[in-house]
Every structure is written in C-alpha cells, then in structure tokens.
Computed example of a mutant assay.
Amino acid sequence: MTEQKSQYHHGDLASAFMDAAIVRIAQEGVDKLSLRAVARDLGVSQTAPYRHFTDKNHLLSLLAQQGFERLAHTSFEASSHYQDDTFKALMALGLAYIEFAREHPQHYRLMFGGTIKRDCGETQVMKTSMSAFDVILQQATLGVERGDLIQQEPRLLARSCWAKVHGIAMLLIDGFYSELNAQQLNQLLMDMLWINLRGISSQLLPVTPPALN
C-alpha cells in the first residue's frame, strides 16, 4: 500500500482520481460513485480525495468540464480537415461528436444529465460546454458568410445543428439506433443537417448530398 501511494505526485493524484472515477461511472453509473471507492481503487487513503475535491459533486463538475473540453477538441480536429467545405466540416464535426458519445456514454450522460447541483459547479460546467458549441457556431458563421448555408442567423443554425446531433447521440447510446451501420448513420446525419443548413430535403435533390471522403 505504501509503495502504491508513493507513486502519485500531488498533481498526478487529482488526474488519477478523475480517470478512475470515469472508469467507475462507466461500470456502475454516476449514482453509485463515491470518493472512498475511487480511493480504494487507487490504493490511497480515504482522506486523499479531499485534498483535491470538496465533495462528489465537485469531482463530477470537473469531470463534466473535462468532457466538454475533450468534445470541443475532438470536434474541432474533425472539422479542420474540411476548411474549404462548410457542409463537410459540419458533417465531420457531427460524426466525431456522435462517436465521442458512443465511446464515452456514461461520461457523455454526466455532461448533459443535470446530475451536478447548482451550487456545486453547474455554472462553470455551462461555461465550459459553450466551448463545444462554439466549434459548431464557428462553422455556421463561416458557412453563412460564404453563402454555403441558408441565410439565417448563424447562432440559430448552430443551435439547431447541436440539437440534432445531440439527439442522434443520445438515441444511439440509449440503444435506439443499434441497427444502423456506419454508412446508414452517416446518411441519417447528412439528411438532417442538409435540411437544416440548406433548407431542402435531400430526397428532393437529383443527387445525394456530398458525403465525406
């Protein structure tokens, strides 16, 4: 036990707690998470978590912020490959967003699930969540300026895109789209975004909207 405790530096232990907490949440859900259980998983004293976290809600708040930061980074990286095509950038962003939710379902639910109390970090979580929204907003603004998208207020377009992608992500991790393969999921997202961003159903087009290469 002493040897295992000594492997953590002050800063490393906070990160280790967050990583171990995510593992526990994935296995048992948020409700059963406890700081003491995570401490046992790491082989450290039960008081060790309180050097870094006020309580469970403080830990959950930081985990949600971490999730939004990672989601923003993942989305931005995906969209950056299509700098000259707004629609493809938004498609790539949306698919990366959905894949993040599929790979980290419990973390994703924590980010959006309303688990964190108002007096325990919800305000900061909301601020951090906007970093993920801002990636969408940036593309929507650019698309309207270029004339790639319908001429609507970019923030409204971005919010509509976010709602659609989030809806697909939640339905997917809840098992409602389990029958869809990658190509079908791609087509579903494409159809929803095409209607939203072009103002026309893809079914009315002579050709299918452009897919990602």
Rank of each mutant, 00 (worst) to 15 (best):
M18V: 04
A20S: 15
A20L: 09
A20F: 13
A21E: 08
A21S: 13
V23E: 12
V23K: 09
V23Y: 09
R24M: 14
I25M: 08
I25L: 01
I25C: 00
A26H: 15
E28N: 13
G29A: 01
G29Y: 08
V30W: 04
D31L: 11
K32H: 13
L33T: 04
S34F: 09
S34P: 06
S34A: 09
L35T: 11
L35R: 11
R36A: 14
R36P: 01
R36I: 13
R36N: 13
R36H: 10
A37R: 15
V38S: 05
V38Q: 07
A39M: 01
R40L: 05
D41A: 11
D41R: 07
D41F: 01
L42N: 02
G43Q: 04
G43K: 03
V44W: 01
V44Q: 06
V44P: 07
S45F: 10
S45Y: 09
S45W: 08
Q46M: 12
T47W: 09
T47S: 12
T47G: 13
T47C: 02
Y50C: 03
H52Q: 00
T54I: 04
N57H: 14
N57M: 04
N57V: 00
N57C: 05
N57G: 12
H58W: 06
H58T: 01
L59S: 02
L59P: 03
L60E: 02
L60C: 02
L60A: 04
L60P: 02
L60M: 08
S61G: 15
S61A: 12
S61W: 04
S61Q: 08
S61T: 11
L62I: 11
L62P: 04
L63F: 08
A64R: 09
A64E: 06
A64H: 07
A64V: 05
A64L: 10
A64W: 06
A64Y: 05
Q66P: 00
Q66E: 12
Q66K: 12
Q66A: 13
G67T: 07
R70Y: 13
R70N: 15
L71D: 02
A72V: 11
A72G: 12
A72D: 09
A72C: 09
H73V: 14
T74Q: 00
S75M: 15
S75W: 09
F76A: 11
E77W: 01
E77Y: 03
A78S: 05
S79M: 08
S79D: 04
S80D: 15
S80H: 13
S80N: 14
S80C: 13
H81E: 15
H81K: 14
H81P: 07
Y82N: 04
Y82F: 10
Y82H: 08
Y82R: 01
Y82C: 02
